[in-house]
Each structure stands twice: as structure tokens, then as C-alpha cells.
Lab assay of single mutants.
Amino acid sequence: LGPKYVGLWDFKSRTDEELSFRAGDVFHVARKEEQWWWATLLDEAGGAVAQGYVPHNYLAERE
């Protein structure tokens, strides 16, 4: 699936296409579209919880 990303700060969605998340949440990014990335929010087991657009500057690649 490629690298995983972690949320740096809490983010509250403003549209139906955006995905709310908390700092520390883990994502798989499917598409990078300039300022907004289409991402899947993952649970602790790595299963998909939700999908939506997230601001790229709120995520960091997980080491």
C-alpha cells in the first residue's frame, strides 16, 4: 500500500468530501492533489475506517 502517514494536528472537516481526524491518527494516502490528499483513515489493526480529503500539511510520513 505504500507509506503510511500520521496526523500532526486535529482537523475538522468543512465539507462532505473532507475527513475529520485527530492528531496521531494513521492514514494511507491514495492520491496527492496539490493542497488536498485523498486518504483512508486506518484503525489500529490497519483496517479502513473512512475516506476523504485531508490537508497535506496536516500529515507527516510515518517512519
Rank of each mutant, 00 (worst) to 15 (best):
V29R: 00
V26A: 06
E18H: 12
H28T: 14
L41I: 06
R14K: 11
H56R: 13
G2E: 15
E63S: 13
E34G: 15
A48T: 10
D16K: 11
E63H: 12
V6K: 04
T40M: 11
N57Q: 09
E61Q: 11
T15I: 08
G7T: 04
Q51M: 11
E34D: 13
L59G: 01
W38N: 00
L42P: 00
W36E: 01
E33V: 08
R14S: 14
A50Y: 05
E34A: 13
A30D: 13
L8P: 02
G2D: 11
Q51Y: 09
A30G: 12
L42Q: 02
E33A: 08
W38E: 00
K4A: 10
A50S: 08
E34M: 10
W9I: 09
P55Y: 07
Y53G: 01
A23L: 05
F11H: 07
L59P: 01
K32W: 05
R14T: 14
E44W: 07
R22W: 07
K4G: 07
V6E: 05
L41K: 10
V29C: 05
D10E: 07
E18A: 09
N57K: 08
G24I: 04
R14Y: 08
F27Q: 00
S20V: 04
F11P: 02
W9T: 06
K32R: 09
V29A: 02
E61I: 15
G47L: 14
A45K: 14
A48K: 07
L1P: 13
G7S: 14
H56P: 13
F11K: 01
N57I: 07
G7E: 02
E17W: 13
Y53I: 05
A45R: 13
P55I: 10
Y5D: 01
G2K: 13
D16W: 08
V54I: 05
E18V: 14
A30Q: 15
V54Y: 03
Q51E: 14
E61S: 09
A60Y: 10
G46H: 05
A23R: 11
D16V: 10
E44K: 10
E34L: 10
V49G: 04
V49W: 05
G7C: 07
H28R: 10
F27A: 00
V49Q: 07
G2F: 14
G2W: 14
D43I: 05
L41P: 00
S13C: 08
Q35I: 11
A48I: 14
K12F: 13
E18Y: 13
W37I: 04
G52P: 02
Y53N: 02
K32G: 04
T40L: 12
R14H: 10
P3T: 12
E18I: 10
D16R: 09
Y58D: 01
K12Q: 15
D25S: 08
G7N: 02
G2N: 12
W38M: 05
R14M: 11
R22M: 10
L1A: 12
S20H: 02
T15K: 10
G24L: 04
F21P: 01
Y5L: 02
D25K: 03
H28V: 14
W36Q: 09
K32V: 05
W9N: 05
E61H: 08
E61N: 07
E17I: 12
K4V: 15
V26I: 14
P55G: 03
V49K: 09
L8I: 11
A60N: 06
Y5G: 01
R22E: 07
L8F: 02
